[in-house]
């Protein structure tokens, strides 16, 4: 039956050019590109708040009394004095510090675990897989409150701060690192390492000349993901921070009062840096492939 329909429809397409004038109506063009246009509209929608962030980074400060968050005039002051509120910059510094440290440890532990899972057979493999999957499936509020419950039970309620945040961040970044590196490692052809061994490379040489350089982009990607997860985290951090303030917590705090426009400077810088990293990575990848 489908064959009959197929011939039928092929026949009608064959006849169509003769029946219709060669110039196509704008309506036909629209119909052909409707999905792309809708897609671009969705994409544009995701950029609306970003435009606001960039715009507000050039906004005159909002007075203490005014509760309305709106644009009142152009200025470069926010960019020239990013640390007008020193507590914002110290929160920012702390976020970067925690982000770097947590990324370092999570990337290290996660990469080792990924190698274990892809390359080695050991008891508890599937349990380990579950243990790695679960933190990604749990809502942040549950991760955060669990950790807090344990810290409190351990009598550490008074010790909450930099190191408890660090512990929490390593915990939730770890799974993402494992998943990213594991995918890269599993996608690698085993024959490459065998070829290296066949070409007189010792196991250590094989690892450093072949395996590591090939997995490295995955590790780098995992580290960048880790940093952005850590840097941006609010929910888990807020529960386990004690009196320590990170950048997202600072924003949370000021959002209830008056918002210093410098946070938009930080937001703009973040997106510029990340875009630059992604685009440079893309163009390098393209140059290597071309």
């Amino acid at each position: 039956m489908s064959a009959v329909q197929a011939t039928g429809s092929t026949g009608s397409t064959g006849r169509r050019p003769a029946a219709k004038p060669p110039r196509r109506s704008p309506f036909a063009w629209l119909r052909e590109h409707v999905v792309l246009i809708l897609g671009i509209l969705v994409l544009a929608y995701t950029f609306v708040p970003i435009a606001v962030v960039v715009l507000m980074s050039f906004n005159e400060p909002i007075s203490e009394q005014s509760k309305i968050y709106e644009f009142n005039g152009f200025t470069l002051d926010n960019w020239l004095n990013p640390c007008e509120d020193p507590s914002m910059c110290s929160a920012l510094g702390r976020s970067i510090e925690i982000g770097l440290l947590a990324t370092l440890l999570a990337t290290l532990l996660g990469t080792l675990a990924a190698f274990a899972l892809v390359r080695h057979q050991f008891k508890g493999r599937s349990t380990s897989n579950l243990l790695i999957f679960m933190p990604m499936a749990a809502p942040e509020i549950v991760l955060g409150s669990s950790l807090l419950a344990m810290f409190v039970a351990a009598g550490l309620a008074g010790q909450l701060g930099f190191w408890t945040i660090f512990i929490a961040h390593v915990m939730f970044c770890l799974s993402f690192v494992v998943v990213t590196v594991r995918a890269r490692l599993a996608g690698m052809d085993d024959a490459l390492e065998q070829a290296a061994m066949d070409l007189y490379a010792t196991p250590a040489q094989t690892f450093w000349k072949i395996t590591f350089p090939l997995v490295f982009p995955g590790i780098l990607g995992a580290a960048m993901l880790s940093f952005s997860l850590s840097f941006d985290d609010f929910i888990v951090t807020n529960l386990n921070s004690g009196n320590t303030t990170t950048f997202p917590m600072y924003v949370w705090g000021v959002s209830r009062r008056s918002v210093p426009m410098q946070i938009n400077v930080v937001g703009t810088v973040m997106i510029v840096i990340s875009l630059a990293i992604v685009l440079i990575g893309q163009s390098r990848a393209r140059r290597q492939a071309a």
């Binding site: 968050y69 937001g267 703009t268 997106i271 992604v278 893309q282």
Partner: peptide, 25 residues
């Protein structure tokens, strides 16, 4: 386009949510 999908979300969650506050004011 893929890069552009991720790009807006590389800025701070709280900062971009605050800009919705402005947009919907």
């Amino acid at each position: 386009m893929l890069v552009l999908v991720i790009a807006p979300f590389l800025t701070s969650f709280l900062v971009r949510t605050l800009s919705w506050k402005l947009l919907l004011a």
